[in-house]
Design a protein around this nucleic acid. Structure first.
Lengths: 216, 216, 216, 216
DNA sequence: GATGAATGAGGCTTCATTCAT
DNA sequence: CATGAATGAAGCCTCATTCAT
């Protein structure tokens, strides 16, 4: 978990965030997620973030070196949460089928809870051309693939997964299927975002990944 | 192949030159594919495209209204080729399993042939935030999903596909799996781009989509 | 003389500047001299220069990489003129005393003709902290010293100059004396800028350098 | 005149600590000298000064109205020392030749001792464009010229100096020669800063000012 | 058709200064 | 006295777009 060691002194009021970090820094980060999700990296202006966060323009630069670092932070944080949960699933109970289904369910549930955050991850991460695939972004993307691949590998060892499946390819495929499916929902291609629709999509993806499309 | 790709009102007065498209216009389009692929839409400047095409600055604006239209044209062209082929597959011989496998093979083969073009589609299409998903881009994306969904639907009718599969979800999932897999290759996550690697990935995706991961 | 090889095509109308250079580029350079002289490097904004030159903001960046390059160009040009004249004097007729006197007269005359340009050289060149003393600025400054030092050296060889005089020190001293004297005039410390005042100062500097202050 | 350098209204209530000046105020002043010397007035940020002084950001503003006042204070202090010494020389023993030589020696010795401080004076004082030549800076500069001019004037009365020498012009010339010579040393144009080099330069300047370059 | 000079709004970033603690 | 978070005006630079030739 983050717990950045910048020794920022807890300003006291809230204790919602343990390793307390300046309230306004958090506000900026939150605002960035939202604005970013709405307008994308290039469409989002620092001014928008500041306004959304209710802070002065310059304060953004007090906490972040520049626009890129701000957005890297957003990514890092979002992915960190996602990765942490993936890891929890992979280390939790159940066989590969259950865990993979869990991954799908989790991803889609997150989307239901915080669509903006998901949108950020989906629309920008790992697709941004070379320049941005720099630091943490790339790393965390690989982490996600690695974790899922791990689930598959162990499934093979236990005979739960087809022996000829390539773990990494399956992992990438699974995440890709999830992603485009979610994108489809974001975009409105797969129906709305009603409970029912979401449930239907969730089932569809899980079935696809586990059982494939072929009739038995 | 695209009999008459995008309905440009042939600006030339006579019919003497049938498929007449100014040589330089084509050069610009080609250049745009390359530059977009390398730097992304926002990262590339009109000047870059012009230079790459070996053409004067202003000429780009002679042939295209503005940057966005240029982008749209690039997409339209690329997608047109892709969509046309998808359609050919879907209208061709074979049942759903064969056709879906064909889609996967085709997509990956295209990538082997013209990685730059694929990269453009992958990195920009359908991920560009709302504002840009304007015209044809969105449309062609939906077309692709629709065609694949059609394959699935007909497969269900013939009993080749599990009756509870949701065609659209499956289609989105398939394309997503393809996409992230390709991205993984672009990025170097799934090994290099040797014949062997590509073959392995191709098989992996086809198996995943058709049979799922679960051991029978 | 400059004659930059950017192959700029002579725009035709005037033929005042042989190795013709875009009229507006020149306008910008002129404007920069003026604004620069008035406000100094840091006080001068690109917007001021553009306005003064009667061109659009962006055009400045069409001709110059950035602010620093613009001002380097101003320096280079001014110094080039100055250096060229110094060299002419040093290669011209007369002994060291006459030539040194010539240098003083020339410098002060230039000031009378183009005080703004002189002000630029005086107030900024060679005094600007490390960062700026970069490229040409530093070089041309050294050139000036070298040329004057050359005059002194040859004077020694011909016995016109005290045999124990250190050419470089004398050169630096001479230019320094000139400079602060001119600064004094710029600033108003040495009286106004009437013909008479200038004549008086000119004589004073020449006498100081040639004969020193000591009564014979 | 500067009996009490810069009229700071001693903020401390009692007289118990005579020349009481807060330790940190002094630290800031010292730091400012160094930072100004390194980066120049415009190139240095208040933050730099604070950091160099090992003091909190805002404290600078506790002791000085603003950046300009800080600069003025630095100058005032440095010049005060310089002016005081000049005055001591001018009021001390010896004729004009000895005193002028003394001025040169003193200036160069100071440089040897505290090059940073000298650099500040050289690179900023009296060259800052009109806007800044405001308060004390300008004044002290004029003071220096006046004192040296005084030495020359009295020399003329005693017949030690050529009767046609203009005191103010000579003074400006002398200081200018000194200045550019020192700059040359700072910049590395006149050799290094070894004892020997300094000695050579010192002699060169004294000879130039007293005897001129012409062979007798 | 073709060229590239010219335009100018928009956005990022810096940094002096203020203020609450 | 000290601290450093907060503010926001100011300026540099980019780059899509226009236009005269």
């Amino acid at each position: 978990m983050p717990a950045e060691p910048n020794g920022r002194p807890s300003p006291s009021p809230s204790f919602t965030v343990p390793e307390s970090e300046p309230e306004k820094r958090r506000a900026i980060l939150h605002a960035a997620v939202k604005v970013f999700a709405e307008k994308g990296y290039h469409g989002c202006r620092i001014a928008d973030v500041a306004k959304q966060a209710g802070v002065a323009y310059g304060l953004v630069y007090h906490y972040f070196q520049n626009k890129e670092e701000l957005l890297e932070s957003v990514f890092a944080e979002q992915w960190t949460i996602f990765i942490t949960s993936l890891r929890a699933i992979s280390e939790g109970p159940g066989g590969a089928p259950e865990q993979l289904a869990g991954v799908c369910r989790f991803a889609i549930d997150v989307f239901r809870t915080a669509p903006a955050a998901v949108r950020v991850l989906l629309l920008e991460v790992a697709r941004t051309p070379n320049a941005f695939r720099a630091g943490s972004t790339r790393q965390t993307f690989e982490d996600a693939v690695a974790i899922v691949a791990g689930i598959v590998r162990r499934g093979k060892e236990r005979g739960e997964v087809r022996p000829d499946a390539d773990p990494v390819v399956v992992a990438a495929g699974l995440l890709g299927a999830l992603e485009l499916t979610l994108t489809g929902m974001v975009v409105g291609l797969l129906g709305g975002t009603s409970e029912e629709d979401i449930e239907r999509v969730k089932k569809g993806v899980v079935d696809l990944v586990l059982g494939g499309v072929a009739a038995r």
